[in-house]
């Protein structure tokens, strides 16, 4: 179990609205999932390097040349709300 307070805190970090019923359910389910994944803590891996990418790619570079990308008009065309030039959002609180 993780506490409902903790669930609400994490939901807030994720900007995710949850109903009271979801918070209660999530508390039990996340607790059970976390219990099962804690198994990896058994391993002593202090000396092991982490893997972020299976091909171990690092610093893929390309030349910095302009090319045709989406126009502003195209990019704004799929927005829920926009002016001719900008995405619009409600008041920043």
């Amino acid at each position: 179990m993780i506490s409902e307070e903790e669930v609400r805190h994490v939901a807030d970090l994720a900007r995710l609205g949850l109903t009271d019923e979801e918070v209660e359910r999530m508390s039990g389910q996340l607790g059970a999932i976390l219990d099962s994944i804690e198994k990896i803590g058994e391993l002593d891996l202090d000396e092991v390097q982490p893997t972020a990418n299976p091909l171990n790619l690092t610093n893929v570079l390309r030349s910095d040349e302009p090319r045709r990308e989406l126009s502003r008009e195209e990019a704004l065309s799929v927005a829920p709300e926009a002016t001719e030039e900008l995405f619009t959002v409600p008041r920043i609180d």
């Binding site: 900007r15 995710l16 609205g17 990019a75 799929v78 829920p80 995405f87 409600p90 920043i92 609180d93």
Partner: peptide, 23 residues
């Protein structure tokens, strides 16, 4: 997050808009 594409739930402030849209 309801800003650039996809569904948006209108709200008075941007944080509530994020939360409600994603909920």
């Amino acid at each position: 997050d309801g800003v650039r594409y996809g569904h948006r739930v209108p709200a008075g402030g941007v944080h509530e808009m994020y939360r409600a849209t994603r909920e």
